[in-house]
């Protein structure tokens, strides 16, 4: 078994790590970099709690091998707030009561960020599509839609 040296750019920081080829980005983020905000919920790309942004687009970190990131820029939930100042989407989630258990929240907020970065004034339909990769079992999604609308304003 041979480890490979890879370069990862996560939240603007550069890391040099050696990984086995079968390690997923999710595992590397959580175990090597201690970025526990990225969650593991099903490990097969269905639930979306492991969502991170790769070059600004939401991807499943549980389906992406770390060796396959190949220089892409990763953003995790830890990269959103700066020096304790919450990102407007994070504020909107709190204000609109879009957070219950919180387990889907990091992935949901990152999907919302990708959506709003590409489309600052999405329709409700576009919000639903943009968030469709993230399951939430607590809120029924409605307050999450409102939070994203709120953050867009």
């Amino acid at each position: 078994m041979v480890k490979q040296e890879i370069q990862l750019d996560v939240n603007g920081k550069s890391y040099s790590i050696s990984v086995f080829p079968q390690e997923t980005l999710l595992e590397v983020l959580r175990e090597n970099l201690g970025l526990i905000g990225t969650k593991e919920g099903c490990s097969e790309g269905e639930c979306g709690v492991c969502t991170v942004l790769l070059d600004g687009l939401p991807v499943r970190s549980c389906l992406l091998l770390a060796v396959d990131v190949r220089g892409g820029k990763i953003t995790t939930i830890e990269g959103l707030s700066e020096k304790g100042v919450l990102h407007p989407i994070q504020k909107a989630f709190i204000e609109h009561g879009a957070i219950q258990c919180g387990f889907c929240t990091p992935g949901m907020i990152l999907s919302a960020k990708a959506l709003l970065d590409g489309n600052p004034f999405p329709s409700e339909e576009e919000i639903r599509i943009g968030l469709s990769g993230n399951l939430c079992r607590c809120t029924g999604y409605i307050k999450i839609f409102k939070a994203v609308q709120g953050a867009a304003l």
């Binding site: 970025l35 526990i36 905000g37 995790t76 919450l86 989630f93 709190i94």
Partner: peptide, 21 residues
């Protein structure tokens, strides 16, 4: 009053710890 929930900020920032963390 619908005050901001006391545990929302840590959940929004991904710092809230769950068992696997």
């Amino acid at each position: 009053k619908s005050i901001p929930k006391v545990d929302s900020a840590q959940k929004a920032t991904g710092t809230a710890q769950y068992i696997n963390d």
